[in-house]
């Protein structure tokens, strides 16, 4: 019977397990409070406090001074529209300025860097300011916090210096190294020369964690192979539990876990692979969004 109706069997098991709660008011109260106390603490510390105390939401009260003299012949509604348009233009120029400033700072570095321009939908691998590979972003999504920062016109403060790569996670190895033992004689060497070269058909999905709480997630546009799907499951698990692990580590050190501002972009597989393989440790990133 249990096999025929496993759901019912589970409910029966639950009912038997919690039978002692029946008609016992004290047990019910104890159960309820002991059930909610830990999740509530975790929710407050890992969800509410990081949102309430996120470093991006600092007040900026300068420029709050009413001045409608610039529009003497306009109606209040027109003034509001003009203000908003001007604010948007200013914000976009400030972001452009921050992007070029960050890229010019990256020129001073010898290593390969990344420039991600979400407005023009372009990603570029650069060395010393020279774009070596440019690729089109097919689709992107970003954290709700980005939208909030944009609406406040405060993105440029965060973007004006390059981000530095701290940690990476991927479905493909950084370098496809194959180990070969040296042959003992010419006969063995000739035998190994006849071996076919393996053609690498790896899917490329990766996550780059930068400083200043930025995470860049790169996904390939093509659907993954079967092996690629399995690797993707493992990669997703590592990503999810990695984030939970970071939160636990922060709690152990009596710190509030930080909310990471994420950007997810979709690229063709070959572009994603080339970018991941080319980026050195501590690569820089200039961002325009």
């Amino acid at each position: 019977m249990a096999l025929k109706n496993p759901g019912g069997a589970f409910i029966n098991w639950l009912a038997q397990t919690f039978l002692f709660l029946r008609q016992n008011r004290q047990a019910q109260l104890v159960f309820f409070f002991s059930l909610i106390v830990f999740p509530l603490i975790v929710f407050v510390v890992a969800v509410v406090l990081p949102v309430a105390k996120n470093p991006f939401e600092e007040s900026n009260e300068e420029n709050i001074k009413d001045n409608t003299e610039a529009f003497p012949d306009s109606t209040p509604a027109e003034i509001v529209t003009s203000r908003r348009e001007l604010a948007q233009r200013m914000a976009s120029l400030e972001v452009d300025q921050a992007f070029f400033q960050a890229r010019l700072q990256l020129v001073k570095r010898d290593s390969i860097n990344l420039a991600v321009d979400l407005i023009d939908s372009v990603v570029a691998l650069e060395v010393k300011g020279v774009p070596m590979r440019r690729c089109k972003i097919l689709r992107y999504r970003s954290s709700g916090l980005v939208k909030r920062l944009r609406s406040q016109g405060r993105l440029h403060q965060w973007l004006s210096t390059p981000f530095v790569l701290q940690e990476e996670l991927a479905t493909l190895p950084k370098a496809p190294i194959r180990i070969k033992e040296a042959p003992r004689d010419t006969i063995e060497a000739n035998e190994s020369k006849g071996e076919d070269l393996p053609i690498e058909q790896r899917d490329a999905e990766f996550t780059l964690h930068f400083d200043r709480s930025l995470t860049l997630v790169v996904e390939q546009a093509q659907p993954p192979s079967f092996a690629g799907r399995l690797r993707k499951i493992w990669y997703d698990l590592r990503r999810t539990f990695g984030a939970a692990g970071d939160a636990v580590a922060a709690l152990i050190h009596r710190q509030i876990p930080q909310h990471r501002l994420w950007i997810e972009i979709e690229l063709p597989r070959e572009d994603a692979k080339a970018i991941y393989r080319a980026l050195p440790p501590h690569a820089g990133l200039a961002l325009r969004l």
Binding site: S59, N63, R83, A87, S151
Partner: peptide, 20 residues
Amino acid sequence: ESKFAMQLRTTDVKKLQKEA
């Protein structure tokens, strides 16, 4: 949204036009 939203930043319009 935070009370320091974008439209409030632009109240000093004359100054911001020059700055733009």
